[in-house]
Computed example of a mutant assay.
Amino acid sequence: MTTRRLLLNQSAALAASALLLPRPAFAQTATGAWPQRAFEARNIAEVLKALGATGPALPSKELTLQAPDLSEDGALVPLQLSSTLPGVRQLALLVERNPGLLSAVFTLSDAVEPTVSLRIKMQESSNVHALALLADGRAFVATREVRVTAGGCAGGTDPDAVKNPAAIPIKMRAQASAGKGTVVRALLSHEMESGQRKDEQGRVIPAWHITEFSARLNGHPVLGAWWGPAVSRNPFLQFTLKNAKTGDRLALAWVDNRGERRSDEATVG
């Protein structure tokens, strides 16, 4: 009985890990791990190399970046990346004048529309780039200038900051619409500390942010993401499933750079 219980516990732990890590199904890097080289890259060429692109990114009208011309709060800049290019496997977001160039990478399966919305931090007014990487290794780029009134990378001290984000459920809604796919909206609770602030003694507060996000539909991976500290506090994410049906089970999960993690499920309505 003890052996059987141990095996069951081990199986449950493995299942939980599988929920959090859909990377082997469609990751584009050699190891599938959080791509540190990409997030430490100093220019677009280095980002592309780290993500496995076969050449430079070319401008394309089939890749769009929706962003405000002016954002009064650099800590909360809403953006949408969208593409009609065939065979898109990754979408990435870069901000030239942020402390780290790369903000986020999304890896898409065929079950997801190549469109994602999120909110990021911007240190100052800057060019923002959307990248689309195709299955054959080609890359494309779209660029917009976004001006910010007040920079938001460092953030400020918040007395209501989330102390234990893994204890707070992911708020999610998956609403099916005939002929328009299923729009998924998710709100995660996490401080997303940038590593740019200092405490009262002048010591740098270490970065603490979600590094991986994943979505599974009926147990199958449909979307994965790598995030850096430029994703806004309490991250919001929106994407669209192509063929989800009412009653399908959607599981969302995240893990941060401290190893804390959270996973939750909802039913498509």
Rank of each mutant, 00 (worst) to 15 (best):
A130T: 04
D248Q: 03
P165C: 10
A167V: 03
Q123F: 07
V47N: 06
A13N: 04
V141S: 02
T267S: 11
H209V: 02
S232F: 04
F239T: 01
G137L: 09
N234D: 13
G87K: 07
S103T: 15
L21A: 11
R216A: 04
G219R: 10
S232I: 05
S60A: 15
M192L: 08
A139W: 06
V112A: 10
P221T: 03
L6K: 13
Q196N: 09
S117F: 12
R233P: 00
G87V: 03
S82R: 05
A150Y: 03
A25N: 09
P22Q: 09
G32P: 08
S126G: 08
C153S: 14
L101H: 06
E113V: 12
G228F: 08
L241G: 01
L65E: 08
A225Q: 12
S263Q: 15
A230L: 13
L131Y: 11
G247N: 08
L101K: 15
K163T: 15
R89T: 04
N218F: 03
A16P: 00
N98T: 00
N234C: 07
T267K: 14
L20Y: 02
L102T: 08
P78W: 07
A161Q: 14
M122P: 02
E62M: 07
F239P: 02
A253T: 05
S177N: 11
P165A: 10
S232P: 04
T211P: 01
L108P: 03
S71W: 02
L51A: 05
V162R: 02
G55P: 06
F26W: 12
V105C: 11
H129K: 13
Q175P: 00
I205W: 04
V255C: 07
F236E: 10
L21R: 14
T64R: 14
V116F: 04
S11Q: 15
F236S: 06
H209E: 02
A174W: 09
E62L: 07
Q80R: 15
G152D: 05
L58P: 00
L134V: 01
T149L: 15
F106R: 11
V148K: 06
G228Q: 13
R261M: 10
T267L: 15
V116P: 01
A27Y: 06
R37M: 02
T211D: 11
G195H: 05
S109P: 03
A132P: 06
G137Q: 09
P35Y: 11
S17M: 14
G219Q: 05
A230F: 03
V116E: 02
V88L: 05
E260D: 14
P229E: 08
P56F: 01
N164V: 12
L7M: 09
W254H: 10
S60T: 10
A139T: 05
T64D: 05
A176D: 13
I120L: 15
Q201L: 13
G179M: 11
G179Y: 13
Q66I: 04
A154N: 01
R147Q: 15
Q36T: 07
T115A: 15
R173C: 00
L76D: 14
